[in-house]
Write a protein that binds this DNA or RNA. Structure first.
Lengths: 262, 262
DNA sequence: ATGGGTAATTGGTCAAACCAATATTTACGG
DNA sequence: CCGTAAATATTGGTTTGACCAATTACCCAT
């Protein structure tokens, strides 16, 4: 009964691996919608049933989600498996934010350094696009777009390191931090001075990577995080003062600690 | 773009759940052969593609195995079905292992450096305990204890950094790597020379942290990871050679037919 | 009996079509 | 002019039927 023979390669496995690789490498980001099955089948040169079997495999792994009539989307389970518990924890223990920023300082610095060393021309093109989009979003007064393009920019850097852990972690941590900020501060104060400073910092990172100067890139990234850390601490202090004042006005204990997302 | 609506039940999910239940309940024991797809399809009242999608789901979970012309069998090692998406991803994409090691080199280096700077006396006490326990486990020939005490030691370092992200992440990544090694290589070659080298490397990290020499601690940690990376690559190469030799004996014409993917 | 060759079995893949839920566009009415 | 509802297009879900390829089972000649 035992079957020692070579396993015949299944086409659905090859397709699943191909899609999985695209997701891991970041060309299919979490939240992205896959092309329609009929198109994707043609593009990959396989029949629709085979494509569907591959998609079902990925769906059973929780990497994609399909809705009839809607489309098939890449889930963010990859990041959430690592950091879903963290979101709750961040709400309960705000001092975690400092740990996160310290960690990000190391991560983003290393990412910028490696990106400057290893980025291919394609990587630089993507980085340029993300950089331009982010600058436009920063000029406009759309905090939603600002946040998402910021993530895209840092993720583009992460992908240029050619290390999937860096790419996913840096994007996940940035997203985690942004969500946490939105949760706890509502809207971060966007004073024009900070905006322009952020823009110049991003530009410094961008040029250092483009000109392939690893140590300069690392320094620029670390400076950027240091600034974020400092200005965030400042905002928190003022927010705390405001809350204290409000508390003094009305003996009203508004305490919300359990904030479970996803 | 958000999908708040109720998910439509997919028939392939229902079929997969049905088969999974039969397997877990024991009416389909490990090693059993499923009925032919055509029969099973009519028995379950679904079409063959739907049945196949369900089977692919189970196959991707490692619960069944199919051979063209042979049949579909319930896999006999149910206990090895891990639910960690990163785990089977590492199996599918071995180059992830290199990414992981590169990432760990940065992480462990930074952890050792910060630990040397910040460890309190209590931290050092815990670190000493973990260090002693690990040494005992390495002297004994208990690979199980060796792995767990190794995790404990690195986690003690992580905790001494007073950054929860570092602590949890370094332990999680080490565990992930150990599981992956166990899964792919069975038992890692434990040549005595490697054992004593590992012991001395651990001792170097331990002393550097105890004596509060941050840069020495970082260097020792990085040396340690470099050694692990090199010896792991060596083991993988020899394993690959062994597999090649086996393949050569059975003179199988390896056939690559899936070409138009990606 | 045994060996080899043939036929039946069975998973793998593809094609075309239709259904159902969703998304998008259009048209209508306020 | 805007908002809402109907109509249309898009897209995943499912079925049928067919053919291919690997495996297994069978049968016959030696």
């Amino acid at each position: 009964m035992p079957q020692n023979k070579v396993q015949v390669p299944r086409i659905s496995d090859a397709v699943a691996a191909s899609l999985e690789r695209r997701i891991l490498e970041g060309s299919l980001k979490p939240g992205d919608r896959l092309p329609p099955e009929r198109e994707l089948a043609v593009e990959l040169g396989v029949s629709r049933p085979s494509l569907r079997e591959a998609i079902q495999k990925l769906a059973s792994k929780g990497m994609v989600q399909s809705r009839q009539g809607g489309g098939t989307y890449v889930t963010d389970r990859l990041e959430s498996t690592f950091f879903d518990p963290w979101q709750d924890m961040m709400g309960a223990h705000p001092n975690l934010r400092e740990d996160l920023l310290e960690f990000r300082r190391m991560l983003e610095g290393q990412a910028a350094e490696w990106a400057a060393e290893r980025a291919t021309d394609a990587d630089l093109t993507r980085l340029n696009q993300a950089f331009e989009a982010m600058n436009q979003a920063f000029d406009a007064d759309d905090s939603e777009r600002r946040a998402s393009t910021d993530i895209d920019f840092h993720q583009a850097i992460g992908e240029a390191t050619h290390n999937v852990l860096i790419g996913h972690l840096s994007a996940a941590l940035l997203r985690l931090m942004q969500d946490n900020i939105r949760l706890n501060l509502g809207e971060l104060k966007t004073i024009p001075a900070a905006i322009s400073l952020l823009k110049s910092q991003h530009a410094a990172i961008h040029t250092a990577i483009t000109e392939r100067k690893p140590s300069a890139a690392r320094a620029a990234a670390e400076t950027h995080i240091d600034f974020v850390r400092e200005s965030l601490a400042q905002s928190l202090r003022s927010a705390a003062r405001r809350q204290t004042a409000e508390r003094r006005l009305s003996a009203n204990t508004t305490d919300f600690s359990a904030s479970s997302i996803s």
